Simulated scan of single mutants.
Amino acid sequence: MAETIILDTDPGIDDAMAIMYVLANKHLKLMGITTVFGNATIEDTTRNALFIKDKFNASFDVACGAAAPLIKTPNGPTVIVHGEHGLGSVVADAPKSVAEEETAWQYMAKKITANPGEITLVAVGPLTNLALLVQNAPEAVSLVKNVVIMGGAFGENGHRGNVSPVAEANVHDDPHAANIVFAANWPVVVIGLDVTHEIACEEHYIETLRDHAGEKGRFIYDVSQFYLGFYETELKRKACYLHDPAALVYVSRPELFELREGPIVVVEEGGAEGMTIQKTESRVFSNDAWEQRPSQSVAISVDSEAVLNHFSDTLIGDHA
């Protein structure tokens, strides 16, 4: 039976790659996309989601979400990574589809309440929409099957921050929201830079998708060219990381990841803003911000070759 997903996302190049994967994966059912600011403005991320829906004649819903963080001053779109409007050099046509009347958190609450224990929330952008769900519809929290997050960095495998020495972009965009989400009493799995920075797509891998994965593969190739250019400047090699798709691969193939348990706290202000810290020992300290928080799961290792093979096999198999 297919796993039902609501994808909370800020498309975004790797977000678009993630959407292609879930549309190609027969074991995943994409009920809806909820949009959030982050890689681009909320207007652009919502437009991009609707554009992808139309382009691939998909049936998922789109609900527009938060335009800014809960408290902090917005960091602004990551134009240097994702281009002026979020999809690199690809410009979204004016969509024919329209967004739902409900806001993102309202849409989530409605669908979760109507389908108790059946929906997995996969969040691959700032966590503002999920925090608003916790704040405004706390009764829905216990009805969620799982929460899978692409975000954070815990120092495993030598990987820490990508927007500061200690912070990952999605969490750094709204650290207050991330703290609310990690403190909620639902099962969270964090797929952070500890593992996504182990999953690199070389240029030839993207070219293989272009040549053998049909329209979805060609779309991934087109949007990823800007992304590859950014990483060529940063890494001195033409490759990009499979950040957001990794969270969806986890939903479909969790055995490819190793997890570690423990409560998580996010630094909300100061030079370490956005830093994610997991407590991994049972000892109670006299000053212990983790003590009252539920244990959550953090991915600390990954079979990167298997993830890359599964991702390409899924897309190529869908076209075959």
Rank of each mutant, 00 (worst) to 15 (best):
M1A: 07
I5R: 07
I6W: 02
D10K: 05
D14A: 02
A16T: 07
M17F: 03
Y21S: 11
L23W: 14
L23H: 10
L23S: 11
A24D: 08
K26V: 03
K26E: 14
H27K: 07
L28T: 00
L30M: 07
I33A: 08
T34A: 14
A40D: 02
I42P: 06
D44P: 04
T45M: 09
T46C: 03
R47W: 04
R47D: 13
A49T: 01
K53R: 15
D54H: 12
F56M: 06
A58P: 04
S59V: 08
S59P: 01
F60A: 06
F60I: 06
A66L: 07
K72Q: 13
P74A: 00
N75Y: 06
N75I: 05
P77V: 00
G83H: 03
E84G: 11
G88I: 00
S89N: 15
A92Y: 04
K96I: 14
S97F: 02
E100S: 14
E100I: 05
E101M: 03
A104Q: 00
K110R: 08
K110C: 01
G117C: 04
E118I: 05
E118A: 09
V122P: 15
V122F: 09
A123H: 11
V124Y: 06
L130S: 07
L130P: 06
A131R: 07
V134N: 14
N136P: 00
S142E: 14
L143R: 11
K145R: 14
I149M: 05
G152Q: 13
G152M: 12
D173H: 08
D174M: 01
A183S: 09
A183H: 01
A184N: 02
N185P: 15
I191K: 08
L193I: 05
L193S: 11
D194L: 11
T196A: 01
E198T: 01
C201A: 10
E202R: 10
I206F: 12
E207W: 00
T208N: 03
T208W: 09
L209V: 03
D211K: 12
K216R: 13
I220E: 06
D222I: 01
D222F: 11
F226S: 00
Y227L: 07
L228P: 08
L228R: 09
G229L: 05
F230Q: 05
Y231S: 03
Y231Q: 12
E232N: 12
E232I: 01
T233E: 13
T233L: 15
K236C: 02
A239F: 03
Y241R: 08
H243G: 13
D244P: 13
L248P: 11
V249N: 11
E258F: 04
E261V: 04
G262R: 09
E269S: 12
G274I: 04
R283W: 04
F285N: 12
S286H: 10
N287F: 15
A289H: 15
P294N: 10
S295D: 07
S297M: 09
I300W: 03
D313R: 13
G317T: 07
